[in-house]
Structure formats: structure tokens, C-alpha cells
Amino acid sequence: MIVCFSFTDAINYAASIGGFTTGIVFGLALFTFGKKRNYAIAFITSTATIAIVFLYFNFRSSQVYIYQVMEYQRRMQEFADMENMALEAYSVQYGNSFSENKESTLYLIKDRGIYYWNENITLIKELDKLYLPKESHEQNEKLIEYCKLRISLYELAYQKILENSSAYDEKMLELNFKIAAVMSKINTAKSKK
């Protein structure tokens, strides 16, 4: 078995062009100053120092950006976990099970469902302070809107069960359509990434 490896695979062309350009500039500086070699060396040293400082701060800020995007993606798993817990609280069907009674259903909706939607809003507001791409900030706005719509739906479901009334059904249906529309926008934005 023959393994072929070319050094050109590892060459960064931008670095090569930068090194070539730097060599020409410094060579011209040495040639221009001629016998005043000390001036040429001082020019080269100061130029190199400025370039190094500029590149350091530029690279450092890009690293911060990358780390914050990674932090955002990691913490979005917390959002998904809390969303699942909130949805589980709402999925309990009141009246369909002997083990679930009115009080426990109300508890699940209020103290688990609504609680986790509020926690998700807090999480998204915290994550929105990170240095993120514009698209992520726009997605955060949609996620907060989504959570607020869910809270409104849960509050209506709470009232419906508490009062044992169908008076809230139309408003709940309307909220479900709004939630579906926001989720569609979020999914469309994700698919464009």
C-alpha cells in the first residue's frame, strides 16, 4: 500500500502570500536605508511589533466569538430539555386517567409547565447577551415569543380545567395557530443556516 502525501495539502495560501509580501517589504526597507542599517532594523522591528499586536487582538476577538457561539449551542440543549419538561406537563390529559386528578393537573400546568417556559425565557435573555451572529439574536426573539405564547396557552388551559369550562377553547385554538406560525419561522430560519 502506497500512501501519498503532498506538502501542498498543509499549505495555507494566505500565510504564504503574507510571508512573501512581508519579505519583500522588509527587504526593500533594508535596501532603501542602505548603510543606515540601524534605521532599517528599527523600522522592521516596529512594523513587525505593530502587526503582531494587531493580529493578536484580531485573533483573540475571533476566539471569543467562537467560544460564545459554542456556549450558546451548548446551553440551547438546556432550552430543549426544559421545553420537553414543560410540554410533558401540558400533555397530561385531565379526566382520562384515574391516577390524575384535577389538582395534580393544575399543579403540573402551573408549577411545571408555566415554570419551565419562564425559565426558558430567562435562559434566552441571558444567552442573548453573548456575542452572537445577527441570525442568532433574531432567533432568540422568536424563541421568546414562542415561550410567551406557550405561557398564554397554559394559563388558558389552567382556567379551563379550574372552571371546567369550554369558554376558552376558541382562544386556545387561536394560540395554537400562532404557536405553529412562530415554530414554522424558527424552523425556516434554522434550515437556512
Rank of each mutant, 00 (worst) to 15 (best):
A86L: 07
K148T: 08
S104W: 15
N96A: 14
G19K: 02
G23S: 09
A42F: 13
E119P: 01
V25Y: 09
Y67A: 06
L30A: 09
L143H: 03
K125H: 13
V92P: 00
R60A: 12
T8W: 02
T32V: 09
N164W: 15
E163P: 02
M85K: 15
E163C: 05
S184L: 12
F59W: 09
F177E: 13
L173F: 15
K178T: 06
A181D: 10
E88L: 09
Y65E: 04
L127R: 01
M85I: 15
P133H: 11
F33I: 02
G27N: 04
K193Q: 14
G113K: 02
I24Q: 03
E135H: 06
S99K: 12
K178H: 05
T21S: 05
E155R: 06
E138C: 07
K134T: 12
A29H: 03
I151P: 00
S61G: 06
Q68M: 08
S184A: 13
V64P: 01
S91F: 14
K190L: 12
I66Y: 15
K178R: 10
D128Y: 09
K125W: 11
S99Q: 12
V92F: 08
N120E: 10
I52M: 10
K142I: 11
W117L: 04
H137G: 01
Y72K: 03
E174V: 13
Y39P: 01
I144R: 01
E135C: 04
L55N: 11
I144P: 00
F31M: 07
S104G: 10
N12F: 03
A40G: 09
V182C: 02
L153Q: 04
F57D: 04
L173Q: 14
V64H: 10
R150A: 03
F177Q: 14
Y39S: 07
I109P: 00
E100N: 13
L87N: 15
A181R: 11
K110Q: 15
E126R: 11
Q93V: 14
T21A: 09
K171C: 07
S6D: 05
M76R: 03
L149K: 01
E119I: 10
I2F: 13
I179W: 06
I121G: 00
K192E: 10
T122V: 13
E78L: 11
E103D: 14
V3A: 05
A14I: 09
L87R: 11
K36W: 15
S97V: 12
T47Y: 06
T47E: 03
M85D: 09
C147N: 06
S166P: 02
S46W: 08
S136N: 08
R74N: 09
S104P: 04
F57R: 07
K171L: 13
T22Q: 00
N118C: 05
A180R: 13
K192P: 02
V25I: 15
I66L: 14
I179E: 02
F31L: 09
Y154K: 02
I121A: 01
I151W: 02
E78S: 07
K125C: 06
N176Y: 14
K192D: 08
I11Y: 02
D128A: 08
V25R: 04
M70E: 13
I124S: 00
S46P: 03
F5E: 08
L173S: 11
A80E: 11
